[in-house]
Amino acid sequence: MTDAKRRRIGSWNDVATRQVVYETDLGVEVDELDHFEIIRRRVFFDDVLLVTYHKEVGPSFVVMMAIFTAGFIALAFVSRELVPLASSFAALAALTLILGVARLMMKVDVITIFGRRSKAAIRYAYRKAFARRIFENICANAAAAQQRRAEELASIEPPAPVVEEEPPLPPPDDVTAAAPPPEQ
């Protein structure tokens, strides 16, 4: 699984985690970077139960950008006597404002892959067409892997034992005929 044929399909950084997602021939690997250690989770294509695609805003990013914007505006206001400094702060405020508004408008595309035992999520803030292509690709790979697995299992597993059918019971009329006549 962990071999040279890994293809990086996405990464995501937030305050708490840094994640890199790779696609391999057998599934999807999520590398979570935890200080100097990489913790790897895998979702195999032949284990996939559900793949979802949705958009979300990510409120923490927007809130952070709003705080930064407010902070830079305040700094620009405080340092308004020094024009170069104030304009630098104003430019930074504009930048963070643009980033926040862009996030609100574009949202983040999230692909979530649910397996039998694990799940993986891939987030794309800007590459929308690429995200859609990856979603279709993962679905196609999962379908193909499960088809292959079903064929393998069909060839490996012995056929179910044939249960011999029991002889049919006689019809109810015959039963009454076979019964002794009631005593009179």
């Binding site: 032949d46 996939v48 793949v51 695609y53 949705h54 379908a143 299992l153």
Partner: peptide, 17 residues
């Protein structure tokens, strides 16, 4: 009430004989 697009799969299970 979030709406999302889904693709459902039914992975084959090995029946342990």
């Amino acid at each position: 009430l979030t709406e999302f697009e889904a693709r459902v799969f039914h992975p084959p299970q090995r029946s342990a004989r």
